[in-house]
Amino acid sequence: MKSRTTITTIISLTCALSAQAHDPSEHKDKKGEKPRCEALKDMDPEAMDRDDPVVQALLKKCEKQLHRGDELPDREEDHDEND
């Protein structure tokens, strides 16, 4: 059992380290990646349930980009025209 624990630890560490070294396409935009809110514009506004926490979280994250500041009045609107 001891040796299995050691082996598992080694495997896990190797995996954790190689996960960083190994998959540069995933890694490069990990930090500071912008949410791609354009993709959500296809969502049917009628079909969105405003009580659903997922919808609320998406709106909150995208309020700047989607000009939906009015949904959540506690943040100031930001007219970002670059999309």
């Binding site: 990646e33 997922v54 995208c62």
Partner: peptide, 25 residues
């Protein structure tokens, strides 16, 4: 709890760490 119902696009939006880069325009 919500992950199984997310589309790849919704997942990308919810998991993006934009806080540092959000206001630099």
């Amino acid at each position: 709890q919500k992950l199984p119902e997310l589309t790849p696009q919704q997942y990308q939006v919810l998991t993006a760490r934009d806080s540092e880069s959000g206001d630099h325009h």
